[in-house]
Structure formats: C-alpha cells, structure tokens
Amino acid sequence: MAKKLRRTAAFAALARAMTSGARGGPSLGKRLAALPRMIKATARREYDGGLRLALMVAATAYVASPVDLVPEAFLALFGLADDALMITWLAGSVLAETERFLEWERRRETVIPGYVVH
C-alpha cells in the first residue's frame, strides 16, 4: 500500500511540475539547478533527503544498466515498458524532491542560527 502511495505521489508531482508554470511554482531550470545544492546538503546531513536520493540513484542505475538490455531483446514491448515506468517515476521523484528542497531552503532563510538557552 505504501509503495503504491509513493508511486502515485511521484506521478502526481510530475503532473504538477508540468503545469506549475501557470501556478507560479519553481521552473524546471530552478529545480535542476537545485540538484547539486540538494546533494551537498544531503551529504552534509543538513537535509533529510538521503534515502530518496539513494532511490533516485538506484533508479538511474537500473535504467542505464546494460544488464537491463536483455529483457528488451527478448520481451521488446514489456522490456521497454518497465524502463518507461521507471523513467516516469524518476522524473516525478526528482521534481517532487527538488520542490521539497527549494521549500526547505526558503524556510531555512527565515531561521536565525543560534542556540536555545533553557
């Protein structure tokens, strides 16, 4: 059930991103420019996107893997369908996560760094 909800959320994010220009959401250029910052913030453990980033890397490796070429050779349409589904999920996930990251950056700008004294 949770897997289906995540998949649905990724597809919904893809659809939202395709129409976000009309609603004032971040442009595709801003989202793609945010990727290196998101990776750095995740590596520094400032941003909590580690697992999602790992899943995106795994999906990219799956699509780019030469091992996956064998199903396309034998199961042409079905082999390409799994790649198309994975690419669609990956695109939706990247768009959703970069939107989440950009929102995190905006909220972070309003926080004054310091310590809480009790």
Results as ranks from 00 to 15, higher is better:
105 E>H: 01
105 E>S: 00
82 D>L: 07
20 S>I: 01
58 A>N: 01
27 S>Q: 04
99 E>Y: 00
65 S>H: 09
107 R>W: 07
6 R>G: 07
66 P>Y: 09
71 P>S: 06
75 L>V: 10
70 V>P: 00
8 T>L: 14
30 K>Y: 00
104 W>R: 00
77 L>S: 10
44 R>F: 07
77 L>P: 08
100 R>I: 05
78 F>W: 11
40 K>F: 11
96 A>T: 00
83 D>S: 09
26 P>Q: 02
42 T>K: 03
9 A>S: 11
102 L>R: 05
87 I>P: 00
30 K>T: 11
17 A>C: 08
106 R>V: 08
40 K>L: 14
33 A>S: 11
32 L>H: 04
48 D>C: 02
47 Y>K: 02
106 R>A: 15
37 R>A: 14
89 W>L: 15
102 L>K: 01
77 L>Q: 08
17 A>N: 06
92 G>W: 02
41 A>V: 03
63 V>E: 08
42 T>M: 08
78 F>S: 11
77 L>K: 05
80 L>C: 05
75 L>P: 00
1 M>F: 06
57 V>H: 02
23 R>G: 06
63 V>G: 05
7 R>H: 10
31 R>G: 02
76 A>N: 07
15 A>T: 06
115 Y>H: 08
57 V>L: 15
81 A>G: 06
28 L>Y: 09
41 A>T: 06
69 L>H: 08
117 V>M: 11
23 R>S: 15
76 A>L: 13
65 S>L: 12
52 R>D: 15
52 R>W: 12
4 K>R: 09
109 E>D: 12
61 A>P: 04
13 A>G: 14
100 R>G: 07
93 S>V: 03
109 E>Y: 01
16 R>D: 12
56 M>V: 07
14 L>W: 10
57 V>D: 06
26 P>F: 14
20 S>E: 15
108 R>V: 03
105 E>N: 01
73 A>G: 05
57 V>W: 07
60 T>R: 03
42 T>Q: 08
43 A>N: 05
112 I>Q: 11
118 H>D: 14
21 G>W: 14
23 R>W: 04
90 L>N: 04
42 T>W: 05
90 L>T: 11
10 A>W: 08
5 L>A: 15
9 A>T: 02
34 A>K: 04
77 L>A: 13
113 P>Y: 04
25 G>W: 02
55 L>N: 10
52 R>Q: 13
107 R>I: 08
61 A>S: 10
12 A>I: 12
52 R>I: 13
29 G>M: 10
